[in-house]
Amino acid sequence: MSSNERGLVSSILREYGEATRALLFQYLPSVEPRRYLYDLVADYPRRGGRSFRPSLCIATARAFGTPIEFALRTAVSIEMIHNAMLIHDDVEDESEQRRGKPAMHVAEGVPIAINVGDMLSLLAMRPLLENRGILGPEISLRILEETERMARESAEGQAFELGWRRDNVIDVCEADYLLMVLKKTCWLATIHPSRIGTLIGARGAIDLDRCIRFGFFLGAAFQIQDDLLNLEGDAVAYGKELSGDIREGKRTLMLIHLLEHASRTERERICTMLGQARGARADDDIRWVLERMQSYGSIHYARQVAHGLAGAAQYEFSQLYGHLPNSRDKQFLAALPEWVIERN
């Protein structure tokens, strides 16, 4: 990835992220109860983030020549739903940190965190309803339908992961993992923004199912890179506890690879550790699993797969958006597959 491409991606993420956040805060009520609800609703969005999802939505619509304001409300909704899901994910995963600060449930308690997540999800409906004034009723309702589907897919994917962890399922294979990622990560992170951007840009003239392949490969590469950063990233830049995925027992590609290649004894030790409650997993065990992943080449393997998926995303991009006239937004979209596997 050239420095120009990297600069372009950073610039667009910053530009569209700022536009999204500026409008997002207008949708957050400044009324009581502030202490237990509305101040907290603004907490995760205020912590920043890359604004990858709303930027993808806006850039896709703009690549068709559509003004930013036509996609902005939907981008706001996507960012709000993303933050709402993060609050609930952090509870479900028992995560301790989010974007460099204590997770919502750590700071405010689980009941309040769940309620804040619920409210943020509901608030995300308002910009979608207000789409009607600028996009018309048909496109607006289709976006609502798309949002409902995305929410279902995401919950189904999350159900896979939570179920595997609760029941300590250890025979998860790579295809299981990819299907889980398709639903849990890709629908909200890449497929949905891509579909909505295309819907707005092409006004329904393009079959949105064509966006699924591009979104899947891009999102899967994104997720694997995220999992790699969890093991090897910079703790400050990453914003979450390193090796948190091992501690949380997440079935990542690296863990699946390790379980497939470990000796019987090692496999039993891993299974025992995964069967323990999160808090009972010893630091020594976490370090040992990480060391075994390195030793068996699991991390290298996952990185290679992420590269392959990014390549597939580039191919699907050319099939889906290759016909569009050249523009800054199209260049941004084209650069994303490499960006997702190079980011830190």
Binding site: A175, L178, G311
Partner: peptide, 11 residues
């Protein structure tokens, strides 16, 4: 190649 092939089979 195997990783991408699996991904294509899934999708």
């Amino acid at each position: 190649e195997n990783g991408v092939r699996t991904a294509y089979a899934v999708i």
